[in-house]
């Protein structure tokens, strides 16, 4: 079997794993590091449940090979912390932005990158920015309210 060894930083911790070359980042996180908060909903790059931050940018962990992440920095839902992350979590809960919770990690990570930009979004812009994450439960109203509210609170925190 063709194996690779990959060294990377996951949630600020240096990690090394030797895995089959065909292993995706999602399976590396889940199976090698036990970070099962990264969910697989389609493995086709559409649903967004597996979204993680790779070198600070959201990517599809199902469409990224573990091997390609050599030397990279990965943040998953388990390692997401700080004031922005806490504001997002509070807003999601307050606004009814989750039900079953399966899409939630990907939603939160996508929202996190938006919140970090410190840019006010209209409802339409927020919908567009979140259009790469599918939620089958909530109908998105609560998610979009939470996203906009977390962005606004982030901006307010710096003014």
């Amino acid at each position: 079997m063709s194996e690779i060894t990959v060294e990377l930083t996951v949630n600020r911790r240096a990690r090394t794993a030797t895995v089959p070359a065909r292993t995706t980042l999602a399976d590396l996180l889940r199976d090698s590091f036990g970070l099962t908060g990264t969910h697989l909903g389609c493995e086709q790059g559409v649903c967004g449940a597996c979204t993680v931050l790779l070198d600070e940018l959201p990517v599809r962990a199902c469409l990224t090979l573990a091997a390609s992440c050599q030397g990279s920095e990965v943040v998953t839902i388990e390692g997401l912390d700080g004031p922005d992350a806490e504001r997002i979590r509070a807003a999601f809960s307050r606004e009814g932005a989750l039900q079953c919770g399966f899409c939630t990690p990907g939603m939160v990570l996508s929202c996190y990158e938006l919140a970090r930009r410190r840019q006010v979004l209209t409802r339409d812009e927020a919908c567009m920015a979140m259009s790469g994450n599918i939620c089958r439960c909530t109908g998105y109203n609560g998610i979009i309210r939470a996203v906009r509210s977390a962005i606004a609170e982030g901006i307010e925190s710096e003014s």
Binding site: L35, L98, T104
Partner: peptide, 21 residues
């Protein structure tokens, strides 16, 4: 009442079937 299910899902600590060890 705020949902009690939220905390575990918002931190990636849900335990779905694929997550079982």
């Amino acid at each position: 009442v705020p949902r009690r299910e939220d905390a575990r899902h918002l931190s990636g600590n849900g335990s779905f079937l694929a997550d079982l060890r």
